[in-house]
């Protein structure tokens, strides 16, 4: 099994058992990933050029490189079946997957949906970000005035989504409610965001419009906050404009400072972090910041703190101008 797929299986196992779901006829799967089984793809290429006459294990590498196979493996592991959607919107993939799955439930197209994101580190991806000089040579410190890049990570998060009524009817432990999802496309550049974060504002506005909440009703924003100079300045501008007069009360942090940038998994993992803030009533801090970028007019959370948290928003942005935002609410 490929590294990313293993991470996915582990996360799904935890989510499935926590949800109390049993075998079920039809459960659509919606997953986000940027590179799927890239480690196997790399192994395939190495083998193909160094041993061109040998087929040894090559068919297996082809099969398990593909994300649709990872979804099938999930369904087989938990004995259910359903259509599969794999969204590869770069680093917004995980958030898009959660949002798309939520829409399936919200619109009555599915009773339950298994959603998530996953990515394992690979040589190609590491070298790619390094070639772009996007990696920090010191520590990742998003929204710091002297930030100098991101820290790559790997991981997975899986969520079991079902309608509120069905969850309550079966007496499930509800960890939180997704109430809004918005997506937008930034046409500025393939790898650089619009300097003022125009598409980020659109995705936040759209998510809040669906959720029927105003920016001043958002208690915490889990920022995309990669730690690269361009991403963070664009996102800070976007949050400033989006929050408007309430920006000074808007509490923001990027958890990538602690766990790294999980690429296709990031949006799903950060959704889980938001659920934790709603459950436990605290704000996750951003570690490593020494000097807050003066562009940040919001309240950058730098130490762990208890707080009343009812509604949160999480941002995920990616190459290609993929922007996605989710709004979550405390249940009860």
């Amino acid at each position: 099994m490929e590294r990313g797929s293993k991470l996915l299986q582990l996360a799904a196992h935890e989510a499935w058992h926590q949800s109390g779901w049993k075998r079920h006829g039809r459960i659509p799967i919606v997953l986000g990933t940027t590179s799927a089984g890239m480690g196997l793809g790399e192994a395939y290429f190495r083998h193909a050029i160094t041993r061109p006459g040998s087929q040894c294990r090559q068919p297996t590498r082809v099969t398990y490189y593909q994300p649709q196979q990872h979804a099938i493996d999930l369904a087989d592991a938990f004995e259910f079946s359903g259509p599969t959607t794999i969204i590869a919107n770069a680093c917004a993939s995980g958030a898009n997957a959660v949002g798309h799955g939520w829409e399936l439930v919200r619109n009555g197209r599915a009773d339950r949906v298994l959603v998530g994101g996953y990515d394992g580190l690979s040589q190609l991806v590491f070298a790619g970000f390094d070639s772009l000089q996007a990696l920090s040579g010191t520590t990742c410190r998003p929204f710091d005035a002297t930030r100098n890049g991101l820290a790559l990570g790997e991981g997975s998060a899986v969520l079991c989504l079902e309608s509120r009524d069905e969850a309550i009817a079966r007496g499930a432990l509800v960890l939180g409610e997704i109430i809004g999802y918005g997506a937008a496309t930034d046409c500025h550049h393939l790898t650089q965001p619009h300097p003022e974060g125009n598409a980020a504002i659109m995705s936040m506005d759209r998510a809040c419009a669906v959720a029927r909440v105003r920016p001043d009703q958002i208690d915490y924003v889990n920022a995309h906050g990669t730690g690269t100079p361009l991403n963070d300045s664009a996102e800070a501008s976007a949050i400033n404009r989006w929050a408007g007069d309430s920006v000074s009360r808007c509490r923001v942090s990027s958890t990538k400072a602690s766990i790294g940038h999980l690429l296709g998994a990031a949006g799903a993992v950060e959704t889980v972090i938001c659920l934790m803030t709603l459950q436990e009533q605290w704000l996750p801090p951003e570690t490593g910041v020494e000097q807050v970028d003066p562009l940040c007019r919001f309240d950058l959370v730098r130490i762990p703190q208890d707080a009343r948290v009812e509604t949160v928003l999480t941002n995920s942005f990616g190459f290609g101008g993929a922007n996605a935002s989710l709004v979550l609410r405390r249940h009860g």
Binding site: Q68, I86, G320
Partner: peptide, 16 residues
Amino acid sequence: SAFLGSSSENYTVVGD
């Protein structure tokens, strides 16, 4: 999307 000037939804769906 950039060529056409669209900022609306854009999904890349990977599969068979």
